[in-house]
Amino acid sequence: MMIEESFVNGNSLIHRLNPVLKIGFAIIYSFVVAVSSKFPSLFAALFIALFLVILARLNPRKAAVRLAAVNGIIILFWFFLPFTFQGEALFHIGPFAVTRPGVIFAAGITLKANAILIAFIALVATMRVTTLGHALNSMLIPEKLVQFFLLTYRYLFVIQTEYQKLTRAVKVRGFRPGTNLHTYRTYAYLAGMLFVRASVRGERVYQAMLCRGFKGKFYSLHEYSISKADITCAVFMTAAIVILVVLEWTKII
């Protein structure tokens, strides 16, 4: 499947922010939200994330589609978590008791997952994968990991094309998958061939890099300046984190 980058085209404040700031906030925010458990702080977190999406002026329908994917998994939690916790029963479905701690726990997970995901859609999905790579490079992420990430992104498409070529090749010769050994063997061949091609490709790419004087070091063409808007946003983002921490770990409410 291709990485679509469907949110990168935009000219909102969020799109123009320094990518390092966006990634930095997204990471700290995620950690705070992940370890929070009180509902005031979780709702505040969700509110902050929604506010960021509004600031980024993203297409709400597309964002909802992405959220649906994650909430599909979260629904599974709702099927068993309310029944598996001990505690005060809210009501009974047949022989099973739906407990209060179970419902609270499931609700907490739902809020956390959605808040973090929405924040990432607003902050990280609004930059190109390449920008993300370069920004990570200028943060503390090791260069090798960043290059690994960018090369994977670059060749995902090539390998996908090769996979499509292979599947087309079997289709045009009348292959129809079924539950039999022939099908399993064919899929094994496809997978094996894909690995072989990917590794041969990797070798050729490396040779091409050697031919252009590659000595093991990558250089980045990008430098990101810090604008006034970045500083203002950094202040607001810090304030947002402080509010979340105060709501979670102090006894104001």
């Binding site: 190109r128 790579g133 090369l151 490709r201 040779q207 091409a208 890099m209």
Partner: peptide, 13 residues
């Protein structure tokens, strides 16, 4: 050297 397959040559984003 110009490679036969341009996808081998172009690896940057």
């Amino acid at each position: 050297l110009l490679f036969q397959d341009s996808d081998d040559q172009l690896f940057s984003p």
